[in-house]
Each structure stands twice: as structure tokens, then as C-alpha cells.
Design a protein around this nucleic acid. Structure first.
Length: 791
DNA sequence: CTATTCTATATATCA
DNA sequence: TATAGAATAG
């Protein structure tokens, strides 16, 4: 029954070989408890924190406001459980949301109680723990223990296939949308049979439920799960096999959950099943920091805790150790406007410090400039750049700010960009390795059959698919069959045969070479590395660098299998450089971090609070946005600076905007309005002045787009003329428009200068479109508004 | 089959 | 504006 243990888990488990002492540590831990009744690790905790650590029995909810020492409580509590001998490290289940959090917690526990903490095999994310459990009992839920975990892209591809197989028009009912529904159901712990009839009909005229079921069946055939399944299948396992549930209930003497406000229904059910027996469940969280409702988190879980777990102890941590008085009061005043909260009042013993500043800018460009100037000023006053952060609502805000920082030469780092393992080149490389490791991995196979391009396009794939489906075999096997027939034209047939032979060879290779050598070989022989070396686009070099990094990182793993396992669950960009840099990130990415100075641009209606959140979730959406604002403010230790702009470009078009209602939510005594900058000239947007033209051809999307282009891309002459006097812009617009519509000024054979491509010769003129042979960049089709006549 | 052009679309993110 | 995916031309 209990299949082989996870390979990455070499330590014997006291529960598996019952009544054995763990290898090391526990003796010393108990000795420590006996010798040191004073428990030094408890020193320095405030009374609430200490209560939270010592309330070991029964359900406990710790409401930990921002900056109140939450992590400290969590780690000390675990240390306490171990040091007092209440549980072995292996008997404590400790769940976090990110691997990073798990890693940090392990480190901090180790710092308190020493290497005993290494024995905490059940410290991890919901997903990693779910995986571990599922691998042990895979066959009970219809999987093999070496199942693959699908990433988002594989998931989508699979859903697309399912939709097409059902004969539904994929364009009318996009896979994206189906994925949204299925994710939603999984978040709520609903299997295909439990989806409410009304919702099952929400997709493709009532086929939603059926597609969900078909998708799950396909997953089983592929011996694969998606992220949601890692929890859902655990639930099913435990419900259908109470004896197994009981094993785990007995094993986990104490359970701790971090960031409880972020749990979804499935996670709640998962925890509740486990906690039913012993009830020693301690959840730590902050309802005021729940910002993931859009991906299924239920604030209700935390609001309902006392109801769900009768007799629960609730402990509030309200003493803030991070921010100065004004910042804290501003944040508290803001969040107090929310209805759905348990209620806490953060307090500090720190000085009031600086007030929160609010600065209005003319447009987002000026906003970026002002922020840049302030950063330079702070830097001149010897403030560390790594103690400065700019937190934006949406990542589209980043570009303008980055541009500004680049011009100023301020070093910065973007946190939370595309994850390392989500990058195209990494996913491709992994797909190769997956096929080598598991030839039946159809999704991976399909990803790379024609990457790099080798002439195996849609047509060939279609043939493979037909065979695979008819014979009910993996694509790889179907391919083997087909190259023996003459169904394919000679060329693709030969290419496909070569590829198959290569895969055979690579699979053999992995018996003799180390996995990183195999990877190196595969990437080279497949022509994948070549593909990027030939690519002369700007980011190709970075991609090659990433591939090298991937190969390097493989060396740390015992074999390919466990590497792939790790990779599908974790893998993060290892840019832990400590260089002096300003941090730029979204508010979501900022949760859990803190900085001396925090810039908060874009506090405008529609952007923040975000219109879409309002449209989709009404008041709940607004409250979540407000919590996000609260999170932003509470990241600041000493200075919080809010900005709004009166004009902002959204999807390339300028809109005039209204300051965010959150600005009015701030208590007046804690904020100050920063003086309007001197070169600030009111008098309406230059775009307001277009109004007289409304109804005319100037309102066409194309013209507006041209306007938008001009506003940013066209540098040089235009911006020089514009500088200083926005009122005069009307004339300039007219002039420019005349230039492009009249088509004058550009003649065949004329010389032009383009801001990006440099000088070139005009080869053709078509309205406002020019075909130009650039001296360096080759022939391009460009809009005339991007070039300037030379000579 | 591939390369180019066109067109639709736009939160946030973590496994 | 930027990008991804689809349509289309070669």
C-alpha cells in the first residue's frame, strides 16, 4: 500500500517505523527543555506574542497586523513545541503559501533550536505537502506515483484539446475562460460531480461540467495533475479512505498555517479534515491584508474561524514594530472604512515621524519625474537605495517609471517579473527533458517537436494526433509507427525519424551521464541552443544565460526525476544580489516586505481602486482594493509618499483622471499635501483641446493612436518645441497632422532619421506609412511620425 | 511550411 | 502601447 517514499526524502520517519527515536535531536531537545525551564527563546516577546506561542492546545487564531512580529511568533511557537517535547519535528504540519516563506521559516527555526529543525518534513506549501501525500497514495486516486504536475501553459493546451474534441468552437469559448471556471471550482473544492448545475452551464451553452469531467479524464490518462488537483485529490483520497485520513490525523499532532486570510475553500477543507481529530490548529493571519480574493482566497475563512472551530482562542497582535506614528495612523484610518473585518487597532511606541505626503502631478510622465527627483534627493542625503521601493497597482505602470529611472541613471530592480521557470526558453528546455524522462509526456512533446523550427508544422502534428487518438497511444509512439509508413511526405518523415532517434539516444545517455550533462547534450544536439545563438534580438543573450543557469542548477539534484519534480513546484530567479538598488514592484508582490521609504504612484479612480475589481466584485472588490492600499502604506517604516496624476494613458490612449477615493479616506491629521511643482501649469489637458474636432476624422482610432505615438515615441524636435508650454501644443499637433496627412516632406529616395533604427533611405510612401531601407536595421515599414527628414 | 501582417486584448500571482 | 495569436501571403 504505502508506496515507496519520495526520493528527495531520505530521512526515516518516526511514524513509519513506529516508536523509534528520531535519528538525532530529540534527545537534545528534551534535555534542553528540562535544563532550561526559562526557555530563553521566549525572552523579548511581548505579552500577546508570548500568549500566542504558549497557547499550544486547541484551535487558535492569531490576528497579526502588519509589522507585529508574526513570523517571530510562528517560528517561536514551533521551537516551543519541539523544545518542550510536545511533538517531534516530524509531527508538526506547518503550511505556508510560498516556498520562500517556507525556506525562511526553516532557517529561522534552525537559528533558534538548531539542526533539529531539519527534521521538519512537513514544513512547506500546501502544494508541496499535497504532492508528497499524493505520491504516497497515488494509485488510490487513479494515478501512478510518478505523475507529472502541469504548469499553466500545459493546462491551457490540454483544455484547448478537450474543447476541440467536444466539437466546440475554441474561438467563441476560449480555453482561458474554461480554465478560469475550472480553477474557480477547484479552489472551492468542487470535483466535476459537485459543480452546481447552474454554474456547470455557464460555459459553452451548458457544456461546462462536461468539459471539466473530460479534462479530468484526460489528466488521468496522461498521469498528470494540475495545481488545483494537488489539494483536491487529497480531499478525495481522505474522504474515500478514512483509514488513510486517520494516519495523517494521528501523525500531525500540531498544525500551523501562515497567511490564513489567503486560504481558499479547498485549503480550508483540507485543513479541517486534518484538524478534526486533535484540533490543535493554529492559524495566523490578518484579515486586513487579504488581497487575493480574485484567485479564490476567502476572507470568510478567517472571519468565520471562531464559528468553524468552537472554543477557539483568538489572540490579537496590535503592537506594530515597523512604522512611525503618522504612517500607522493613516493606514489605520484608511482600513477602518472597511465593513467586513474583525477589527484591530495597530499602535506603535515609535515617534510620529513624517506625515504621509500626497502629491498631484499633471500626467504620469511628470509623476515619474517627480518620483525620480525625490529618489535622487534621498540618495544625495545618503539614504540607501535598497531601502526605497516604488509600489504600483498594475505592472503596466512600471514602464514609464523604469524609463525615468534609466534616464536618471538610478539603479533599480523589478521584483516579481516573469518567474524564471515561466520563461519561454526554460519551459522549452524543460519540455525536452520531460520527454527524455517520460516519452509519454505528450504535452511536452508537442511543445518541442517543432522548436526549433524543423519543418514539423501543424499538418504533421495533426497526422500524429489522429493516430495517437485512434490507437490510444502517446504521440511519441504514434510517431514511431508513422515514420514506418508512407503517410508523411519524405521530408517531414525523415526529420521526424531523426528526432525519434535522437530522443532514443538521449534517453540512453541519461543512464551513463549526469543529468546536467544530459541536459547540455540535449540542448545542443537538438539545435535549441543554436536557435538562440542565431537569434540576434536583444534578449537572446539573456535567454542563453538562463539556459546555462538551468543546467548549472541541475547539478544539485540526485537525478533528472527529482529535478523535474522540484522545478515544477519551485524554481525561482536567483537574483539575490544585495546591490544598492531601488525596488520596483506591484503592491501584491510587496506583501511581507518593508522599506524605509515607499512611493505609491497612481492613486486614481479606475486605476486604484481598479475599475475591474469594482465591476466584478462590487463592494467586496472595493474593500479588497482598500486592503491593498493598507498593505502599501504599512510597507513603509519612515516615509510614505502617495502620488496621483490628472492624465494617464490607458491602453495607449490618454484619459483624464480623478484622485482616488482612498486619498479622502486618510485622516487629515496624518497627511500633508506636497506643494505643486513650480513648472506646473493648469489650464486643461492639451487633449481637452481636441474637443472642437469631435465628430471629425480626427477622432478615428488611427489618428488617436498616432497621437499617442507622438506623445512618447517622437522625441527630438517635437518634445523640444513642446517643452515648457503645453498651451501651445495645439498648433504643433495641427502642424504634425498636416505633415502626415499631406504626405509632403517625404519623397522617394529621401533620407530620414528614425529614433530607434537610425538613418535610412525612403523606398516607398503609402499615405503616412513609409518603407525605409535603414542603414543598420534593414528594411522596415514605419509611420512617418516616427521619422524626421534629414538634410 | 514559414514569415509577415493583422487584429484583438488589456489586474494582481503562486504553486 | 505592447503583445500574442490568427490570418494571410509567399
Amino acid at each position: 500500500m504505502v508506496p515507496r517514499m519520495n526520493q528527495s526524502d531520505p530521512r526515516p520517519d518516526p511514524q513509519d517505523s513506529l516508536a523509534h527515536e528520531p535519528a538525532s535531536g530529540s534527545l537534545s531537545a528534551r534535555a534542553r527543555a528540562a535544563v532550561a525551564p526559562q526557555s530563553p527563546y521566549l525572552n523579548g516577546l511581548n505579552p500577546e506574542q508570548r500568549a500566542a506561542v504558549e497557547a499550544t492546545e486547541g484551535p487558535v487564531l492569531v490576528l497579526a497586523g502588519a509589522g507585529t512580529g508574526k513570523t517571530r511568533v510562528l517560528t517561536t511557537r514551533i521551537a516551543h513545541l519541539i523544545a518542550t517535547g510536545k511533538a517531534y519535528p516530524s509531527q508538526i504540519l506547518s503550511v505556508t503559501f510560498t516556498n520562500k516563506a517556507a525556506r525562511e521559516m526553516r532557517e529561522r527555526i534552525t537559528a533558534v533550536i538548531g539542526p533539529v529543525a531539519e527534521g521538519m518534513q512537513w514544513l512547506g506549501t500546501f502544494h508541496s505537502i499535497g504532492t508528497k501525500i499524493l505520491r504516497r497514495h497515488a494509485e488510490l486516486v487513479g494515478l501512478r506515483s510518478d505523475f507529472t504536475i502541469l504548469g499553466t501553459d500545459d493546462q491551457l493546451r490540454l483544455m484547448k484539446q478537450v474543447i476541440e474534441a467536444e466539437g466546440i468552437d475554441e474561438k467563441r469559448w476560449p480555453a482561458r475562460q474554461l480554465a478560469g471556471h475550472i480553477d474557480g471550482w477547484k479552489n472551492r473544492g468542487l470535483g466535476p460531480d459537485q459543480v452546481p448545475a447552474g454554474e456547470a452551464g455557464a460555459f459553452a451553452n451548458g457544456k461546462g461540467g462536461r468539459l471539466y469531467r473530460a479534462y479530468q479524464e484526460r489528466l488521468k490518462v496522461l498521469n498528470a495533475v494540475d495545481f488545483g488537483d494537488l489539494l483536491l485529490e487529497c480531499l478525495r483520497l481522505w474522504r474515500e479512505h478514512p483509514d488513510i485520513l486517520e494516519q495523517y490525523q494521528n501523525r500531525f499532532r500540531y498544525m500551523l498555517v501562515d497567511e490564513y486570510q489567503d486560504t481558499n475553500v479547498a485549503q480550508y477543507l483540507w485543513l479541517r479534515l486534518l484538524a478534526q481529530a486533535r484540533k490543535n490548529l493554529c492559524c495566523v493571519g490578518d484579515d486586513d491584508q487579504s488581497i487575493y480574493g480574485w484567485r479564490g482566497a476567502e476572507v470568510d475563512n478567517i472571519l468565520r474561524f471562531e464559528h468553524d472551530f468552537p472554543g477557539a482562542t483568538v489572540i490579537r497582535l496590535e503592537r506594530n514594530y515597523r512604522s512611525t506614528g503618522h504612517i500607522l495612523s493613516a493606514a489605520s484610518g484608511l482600513i477602518a472604512k472597511n465593513q467586513g473585518r474583525l477589527g484591530k487597532t495597530l499602535r506603535t511606541e515609535d515617534e510620529p515621524g513624517e506625515k504621509v505626503t500626497i502629491t498631484g502631478a499633471w500626467d504620469s510622465e511628470e509623476e515619474a519625474r517627480l518620483i525620480g527627483e525625490e529618489i535622487e534627493a534621498l540618495h544625495a542625503k545618503k539614504h540607501s537605495l535598497s531601502e526605497i521601493a516604488i509600489l504600483v497597482r498594475i505592472s503596466a505602470q512600471m514602464r514609464e517609471i523604469e524609463d525615468r529611472l534609466v534616464t536618471l541613471g538610478v539603479p533599480y530592480r523589478v521584483i516579481g517579473g516573469p518567474r524564471f521557470y515561466e520563461r519561454a526558453e526554460i519551459r522549452d528546455a524543460l519540455a525536452y527533458l520531460r520527454v527524455v524522462n517520460q516519452p509519454a509526456d505528450d504535452l511536452a512533446f508537442e511543445r518541442i517537436v517543432n522548436t526549433p523550427k524543423r519543418g514539423l508544422g501543424d499538418a504533421t502534428i495533426q497526422v500524429l494526433h489522429n493516430h495517437a487518438r485512434a490507437a490510444r497511444v502517446p504521440l511519441m509512439e504514434a510517431a514511431r509507427f508513422i515514420v514506418e509508413t508512407d503517410e508523411l511526405k519524405p521530408k517531414p518523415r525523415a526529420t521526424l525519424r531523426d528526432l525519434l532517434i535522437s530522443f532514443g539516444r538521449w534517453a540512453k545517455l541519461s543512464e551513463t551521464l549526469s543529468q546536467s550533462e544530459v541536459a547540455q547534450t540535449v540542448l545542443e544536439e537538438s539545435g535549441y541552443t543554436d536557435m538562440w545563438q542565431k537569434d540576434k534580438s536583444a534578449d537572446a543573450a539573456g535567454r542563453l544565460e538562463n539556459l546555462k543557469e538551468l543546467v548549472r542548477s541541475m547539478e544539485e539534484f540526485p537525478d533528472l526525476q527529482s529535478f523535474l519534480e522540484h522545478v515544477s513546484l519551485v524554481m525561482e530567479a536567483n537574483e539575490s544580489d544585495t546591490a544598492e538598488r531601488v525596488s520596483l514592484m506591484t503592491l501584491h508582490a510587496a506583501k511581507g516586505l518593508e522599506f524605509d521609504t515607499v512611493f505609491l504612484p497612481g492613486w486614481e479612480e479606475g486605476l486604484f481602486p481598479n475599475q475591474r475589481a469594482l465591476d466584478e466584485s462590487g463592494r467586496a472588490g472595493l474593500e479588497e482594493e482598500r486592503r491593498l492600499a493598507h498593505v502599501g502604506l504599512t510597507r513603509a517604516r519612515r516615509r510614505a509618499k502617495i502620488y496621483f496624476a490628472s492624465n494617464r494613458r490607458i491602453h495607449g490612449l490618454w484619459n483624464s483622471t480623478v484622485p482616488s477615493r482612498f486619498i479622502d479616506d486618510l485622516p487629515e491629521s496624518n497627511v500633508e499635501i506636497a506643494e505643486a511643482p513650480a513648472n506646473f501649469s493648469y489650464g486643461g489637458s492639451r487633449f481637452d483641446r481636441m474637443q472642437p474636432f469631435s465628430g471629425s476624422s480626427y477622432q478615428t482610432p488611427g489618428w488617436q493612436r498616432a497621437q499617442a505615438h507622438r506623445a512618447t515615441a517622437d522625441d527630438g524636435g517635437y518634445s523640444a518645441r513642446r517643452s515648457g508650454d503645453r498651451r501651445g501644443s495645439m498648433l504643433i499637433e495641427g502642424e504634425l497632422v498636416a505633415k502626415s496627412t499631406g504626405g509632403s516632406g517625404f519623397k522617394l529616395g529621401g533620407r530620414v532619421l528614425h529614433t530607434k533604427f537610425g538613418p535610412g533611405t525612403i523606398e516607398a510612401v503609402d499615405g503616412n506609412k513609409l518603407t525605409v531601407e535603414f542603414d543598420k536595421a534593414g528594411r522596415k515599414m514605419v509611420l512617418d511620425s516616427f521619422v524626421e527628414a534629414l538634410g
